[in-house]
Amino acid sequence: MPKPTPLQEERLVNEFLVRTNRPQSVTNIVDALQAAPTPLKKAAVDRATASLVARGDVTLKEYGKAKVFITNQSTIDVPSPEERAAIDERLAQLEAAAVDGQAAVASANAAAADVYATLSDADALARSTEVKVQRSELEAKVASFGGGVVLSEEERAALEQKYAEVMDTWKKRKRIVVEAVATISEGANKKPAELYEKIGIETDEEAGVNMKDMPPALKPERKGRKRGRGT
């Protein structure tokens, strides 16, 4: 089997770090890549990690004699607390607008049905005109929600999907940091709290946010099939 080139070595190491997305020592990388089609020795991993760190694709953390490598996390777009709060507020407005809009439509439909079911032709015509005026007022009121813009079902679904992605990213990022600090603290013989302070990591508590206080992300609704009664 031909010996891999330096670029191939870097690609194998970088793909492993991206795939695992957690701190790895050189020993961990070597052991994991022994099952690869082209196993790498320690010297090759040392060369590859040095090149990846120099290029900025990988971050090196040193704590005493312990060295760990992790794929660069700075490219991940994580919303700020202000952006998350804005999304929460917008979702609350949409929920309120949807409830009010549904109630307004139901009321107008019920009034129209009552008109045509119980009144004479003359009274029905007068009542119909009154209902149309009320309906126009209700439609104007519904349109006032959200700064004069009523979102379609597709736009609302897209906003809810964005919120779900934000929450998922937050959870993954938090898990990565917790696991990374745990790995590093074990190798450096330090408490996680000491590393948080030394590295400058701001916890959720320090930022004044709590994941448990955030509204749950809505799951996409599945359209079920209606079953007819058997004979």
Rank of each mutant, 00 (worst) to 15 (best):
K3Y: 08
K3Q: 09
T5F: 05
T5R: 12
E10H: 06
R11D: 11
R11E: 12
L12M: 12
F16E: 06
F16N: 01
L17Q: 01
R22F: 02
P23V: 06
V26P: 01
T27N: 14
T27D: 15
T27M: 08
I29W: 04
L33K: 02
L33M: 07
Q34S: 06
Q34F: 04
Q34D: 10
Q34T: 02
A35F: 06
K41R: 13
A43G: 01
A44P: 00
D46S: 10
T49K: 05
A50W: 01
A50R: 15
L52F: 08
L52C: 04
L52W: 08
A54K: 15
R55C: 00
G56C: 03
G56V: 12
D57I: 04
V58W: 04
L60M: 11
Y63D: 06
K65L: 14
K67A: 08
T71F: 12
S74T: 13
D77W: 07
D77T: 13
S80I: 11
E82K: 14
E83F: 04
A85S: 11
I87F: 10
L94Q: 10
A97S: 15
V99W: 04
G101M: 10
V105N: 06
A106C: 02
N109A: 13
A111R: 10
V115Q: 00
V115H: 00
A117H: 05
A117M: 05
T118C: 00
S120W: 08
D121W: 11
A122V: 15
V131P: 00
V131L: 07
K132L: 10
Q134L: 12
S136Y: 02
L138E: 08
L138Q: 14
A140D: 10
A140L: 12
V142T: 09
A143G: 03
S144Y: 03
F145T: 00
G146T: 04
G147H: 02
G148P: 01
G148T: 11
V150C: 07
V150T: 15
L151I: 04
E154K: 14
R156I: 07
A158G: 00
L159Q: 06
A164Q: 05
A164L: 05
A164K: 07
A164E: 03
E165Y: 04
V166L: 02
M167K: 14
W170I: 13
R175W: 03
V178P: 00
A180Y: 01
A182N: 10
I184Y: 05
E186D: 15
E186H: 15
P192K: 09
E194N: 05
E194H: 02
L195W: 06
L195V: 11
Y196F: 15
E197D: 13
G200D: 07
E202P: 04
E202D: 11
T203Q: 04
D204R: 09
E205G: 06
E206Q: 15
N210L: 01
N210R: 09
K212S: 15
P216S: 12
K219L: 15
E221W: 01
K226R: 14
K226Y: 08
K226V: 13
G228M: 07
